[in-house]
Structure formats: structure tokens, C-alpha cells
Nucleic acid binder design. Structure first.
Length: 518
RNA sequence: GCGGGAGUAGCUCAGUUGGCAGAGCGUCAGCCUUCCAAGCUGAAUGUCGCGGGUUCGAAUCCCGUCUCCCGCUCCA
């Protein structure tokens, strides 16, 4: 074998800061700040030419594993704009809007109503008086405070509303309503009643289509519905690059099972999902499975496992939640609730037109299925995969090599075809035609690369994670220095991670690459 | 929302007391080059985050605002 690169790698390091990764993402066209040319819009990011490939590849891997390679799954793509009643009965309207207030002294934040409930009656009386209220109760007091936040701040501070954290009067900020859901007007007339929401989770689209899918596919339990799509949350503090953002994408499965089998399925999905992340390059030992404490569970959850990936720059953070949502959701959205023996505590539904239940084939009794929900963040997945892949290597030559060691199936660019010399027409035309033939195989992005010299091209592609660089040289075109033609129609294939090269005949390239890019 | 830090070319960052907008890398073009950011020649790229103020004059001083990072807070 000839031309094998032997520069030993000494140190291997991950990204030290998020900035380092952000910088690479911008420089190479993975991810840009949203609305950047107007100063940026907080909590939004745009995926560039390479970012969209990576993200699409991750979603495709998920869809393939969960839809194409299973016999118990259907796909769905529900609308983002959502009827207000969907999010009313789901419980989101009630749990996603909090009036919040801060104490400037202790730096603590409270829900206004919770804070007021902690106060002595005379303090509340003083607040009400300062707000000019005669008759009042807790509801009208909160309403009055929210109606005039500036005055509320003064009233609460001068009435010496106590901060439970330190037992001392606080210096209170104006209270602010905080609605986690984006409300939007629908239709030509802007009025109070013509609004809906941008969905805060894709899950609801699945629940409200449960009957449609059942009717159109003749599925029986257990089976699941998979969906990938955008969701929107008005996060208080978007932070950490694409980790916590206001517009993001979810990959969600709602897996419907018979009550009583839910705990077993919950465990099974936990294992399935851990294996999937491993297949995407996130090793099992870098994920901590958090059995979420009862007190921290979401309003719908019976039990939840959070998959916490050990981000090199952030520590352990959630990339997927696998929740046992019991019969809460279908129970919330179904009509005829009283006939269905629903276990979860649900709001009485007087609007739904569909029975979201199935019939036991033996007993003929109707019941509401339990739901196991593996819900993964696409953007968080992209960040995890990038973080895990980002590597700095110190080479023997003293130089630093930055390489994204992405799994080949996730790499934005699959193959770069490089002419050894770009001023030799025979070599460049061979390289161009080779590139065209490989491109036609449909393996993804295949590029002709002739920027700089060969070394630059390699390093450039290391940095964006291109698994294979093919180099067309003098041997390829039958003009070896020693006059032999034994290497005619072979190219060097350089491996991104090892930097090793081997010569492969062009007739074998398609198979060689396709095998390794899966 | 609080506290701290930052924002100047695609990236990393200089920019002195308020006095012509800079470097390295990258990018592009040409030359050269028989495999790991080699070399030579040339070129392009700036609302100095944005808006206002002070000043003869502002990247620099003041006010406001946006965005990012760190620590709190929040996180269905």
C-alpha cells in the first residue's frame, strides 16, 4: 500500500466550550443565529447547508428505525396550528400560563398566586387597599395586580409582602403573565375568539388523530404512531445554543398499549431508545437514565425516564423523555368519558365528537389505551451528536486537527472526490466524471473538491465530518512515475478517523462506499 | 427576570488620550504542486450589533435597546 499517512495522534479532546462548537457551526454552514441580519431573534436558529443535511439524516435514521423497521407503527404529520380546545382539554392552557414575580433582594422568582397564599391576611388586606379594592378575593386580587403591574409592584413592596425564602419583606418587580404557548390569530378578523395555538408538543396531533388512524389502518393494540415536527414554547430563558430554543423539532412516538402492560412496554421502549442513540454515536455510558421523581412529573405522567446525555460543555442534560402518559390524553380528548373507566384524572370533556377507545376482543368492553411516549428533541439530538463527534487531535507534526467523527449515515457530505493536481486536465476530468457517477448512486452529497492543495482538502472535510475522501492521482490515469499501469483506474480512499488510505478499483467503489455509509 | 462578561471582515481577535478601519487564518482568481491546512502573485469582504446623545470629530465617552456566553431562576 502506498501513500499511507502515519502521523500519530497524541491527544484527543472534545470541544472545551460551546462557543468553539458554535463557531465551527457558523464557519462551516451548519447552524446560524435566527434573524441574524436584524440583530437576531432570541431562541431561534437556522440550519445552513450542512446543518440541514445532518438534521435530515438524524430524522431519517429515526423514521427508519421506528417506522420502516417495525411492524407495529404508523406515521403521521399533523398540523402545527392547533384548535384551542385541543390544548384546553390537554391541560396545557391551565399549566402553561403562570403569573410570575421576582424579588430583587433575594433574586427569587415566584408564581404570584402561590406567593400571595403564603401571606398573612393583614398583608393581603394592605395590598388590596393599595390597589384600591374594596371587596376582593384571591382571584380578583391577582387579576387586579396583573391589570396594573407597576402599581402592583409598589403595592406589594410597601405592604411588605414576605419572601418565603428568607422571611423578610421583598422588593418586588412588576408581575408578568407568562404563557408558554404561542397564541396566534386565525382567520381574517382579529378578535378575541378567533385564535389558536402553535402546538407546544407534537403529541397532541397524534392523540386527536387516534380514531382516524385506527379507522384507516385497522390496527390493534399494541401499536404506535410516529411523528416528526416542529413545536413551539415561549421559554423564559432560551439558552445554550440549540439546546433550549423557542422553536424546535420533536421526534415523538405515542405507543398505545393495554392498561396493565404499560409498565413492561415502558421498560422495553427505554432499552430500544438507548440502543438507537448508541447507533447515532451517543455511547450508552454517556447517558444517564433519570427516573423522574414523582413531584417533578408532568401533569399527564405516571412515570418518566429522562435520557440525560453528558454534554462535554453542559454536563448531563435531557435529550429524550420516555413518559408513561397513562390514559390521560386519550381520556381527556374522548367523548363519553364516564362510560370508559378512565384511570387518570381528566377534565370533563363536553366538546369532543369522537370516542378514543378500543374494544377488548374477548370481553367486548370498551377501554382507553395507555400510552408510552418516547419523545426526543431533534435539535438536542443534533447538538448531542455534534458534541460527541467534535474532536481535536494533536498530531505528531505539532498541528491540531479538528475532526467531526460523525457516524457515516449522519455525515452531511458522504464523499469528496479530490484531484491530486488541479492543473492536470486528465486528472481533473477523471475526478469530475467519477464524482458524477458516484453522485448518481443517490448516497447523499458527493462533492468535487479542489480548493487549496490535497492537505487542505482533507482537513477541510475532517472539520465537517466527511467520512471518505477519494483522490484521483497519476496512478489512476495510468501515468505512474515508474511507468507501470497496475494501479490504473484505482483511487485512494482516505478514512476520516484514522487518516489511513487504501487503493480501491473504481469498479468496486460503489459497493465499497455504500457498505460503509449505511 | 436578576447578577457578571462579551459583540470590530466568514472565523479568532488587535485597535493607545476621542483623530485615515487593522492583523492572522479562511475565502476567491491565477501560477505551482506525484497525498495531509507547503509556496508565489493578485483580489474581494466592514450599517465597528442596532438606535439616540455629547463632540469640530465617536469603534472608543453617555443613555437606551438587541443578541450571545457564564452563574442564578425557570424548564409541562
Amino acid at each position: 500500500m502506498r501513500g499511507v499517512w502515519r502521523d500519530r495522534k497524541e491527544q484527543i479532546m472534545p470541544a472545551e466550550t460551546m462557543d468553539e462548537l458554535v463557531s465551527l457551526c457558523k464557519r462551516r454552514g451548519f447552524i446560524f443565529q435566527g434573524s441574524e441580519i436584524y440583530g437576531g431573534l432570541q431562541g431561534t436558529y437556522d440550519y445552513g447547508p450542512l446543518g440541514v443535511e445532518l438534521k435530515n439524516n438524524l430524522k431519517a435514521a429515526w423514521w427508519r428505525a421506528n417506522v420502516y423497521e417495525r411492524d407495529d407503527m404508523e406515521g403521521l404529520d399533523a398540523s402545527i396550528l392547533t384548535h384551542r380546545l385541543v390544548l384546553h382539554y390537554s391541560g396545557h392552557e391551565a399549566t402553561f400560563a403562570d403569573p410570575l414575580i421576582d424579588n430583587r433582594i433575594s433574586k427569587k422568582r415566584y408564581r404570584l398566586d402561590h406567593l400571595l397564599k403564603e401571606q398573612k391576611p393583614q398583608v393581603l388586606e394592605a395590598v388590596a387597599e393599595a390597589m384600591g379594592l374594596g371587596d376582593w378575593d384571591m382571584t380578583t386580587l391577582v387579576a387586579a395586580l396583573m391589570a396594573d403591574p407597576e402599581k402592583a409592584a409598589e403595592a406589594m413592596t410597601s405592604a411588605k409582602v414576605i419572601d418565603p425564602a428568607n422571611g423578610a419583606p421583598g422588593d418586588w418587580t412588576p408581575p408578568r403573565p407568562f404563557n408558554m404557548m404561542f397564541r396566534t390569530n386565525i382567520g381574517p378578523v382579529v378578535d378575541e375568539d378567533s385564535y389558536g395555538y402553535l402546538r407546544p408538543e407534537t403529541a397532541q396531533g397524534i392523540f386527536i388523530n387516534f380514531k382516524n388512524v385506527l379507522d384507516s389502518t385497522a390496527r390493534r393494540l399494541p401499536f404506535g404512531i410516529a411523528q416528526i415536527g416542529k413545536a413551539f414554547r415561549n421559554e423564559i430563558t432560551p439558552r445554550n445554543f440549540i439546546f433550549r430554543v423557542r422553536e424546535f423539532e420533536q421526534m415523538e412516538i405515542e405507543f398505545f398499549v393495554k392498561p396493565g402492560t404499560d409498565e413492561e412496554w415502558h421498560q422495553r421502549w427505554l432499552e430500544t431508545r438507548l440502543q438507537w442513540w448508541e447507533d447515532q454515536g451517543i455511547p450508552r455510558h454517556q447517558i444517564h437514565v433519570l427516573d423522574v421523581p414523582k413531584a417533578d412529573l408532568a401533569h399527564y405522567s405516571k412515570r418518566t425516564f429522562d435520557l440525560m446525555y453528558n454534554f462535554p460543555t453542559l454536563g448531563f442534560e435531557e435529550i429524550e423523555g420516555i413518559a408513561n402518559r397513562s390514559d390521560y390524553d386519550l381520556g381527556s380528548h374522548t367523548k363519553a368519558q364516564s362510560e370508559l373507566n378512565i384511570q387518570a384524572r381528566v377534565m370533563e370533556n363536553t366538546d369532543s365528537t369522537a370516542k378514543l377507545a378500543v374494544q377488548d376482543p374477548d370481553t367486548k368492553a370498551w377501554f382507553v389505551p395507555y400510552v408510552i411516549e418516547p419523545s426526543a428533541g431533534v435539535d438536542r439530538g443534533v447538538l448531542a451528536v455534534l458534541s460527541e463527534a467534535y474532536t481535536k487531535e494533536q498530531l505528531d507534526s505539532g498541528e491540531e486537527r479538528i475532526v467531526l467523527k460523525l457516524k457515516p449515515h449522519l455525515a452531511p457530505i458522504k464523499v469528496a472526490v479530490i484531484p491530486l493536481a488541479k492543473n492536470k486536465e486528465e486528472i481533473t476530468s477523471y475526478a469530475r466524471s467519477l464524482k458524477a457517477r458516484l453522485q448518481a448512486l443517490g448516497m447523499g452529497r458527493v462533492l468535487y473538491e479542489d480548493t487549496g492543495n490535497i492537505g487542505k482538502a482533507y482537513r477541510r472535510h475532517d472539520e465537517v465530518g466527511t467520512p471518505f475522501c477519494l483522490t484521483v492521482d497519476y496512478d489512476t490515469i495510468g501515468k505512474s512515475q515508474d511507468g507501470s499501469t497496475t494501479l490504473k483506474d484505482t483511487v485512494t480512499v482516505r478514512d476520516r478517523d484514522t487518516m489511513m488510505q487504501e487503493r480501491v478499483h473504481v469498479s468496486e467503489l460503489a459497493q465499497y462506499l455504500l457498505e460503509r455509509l449505511r
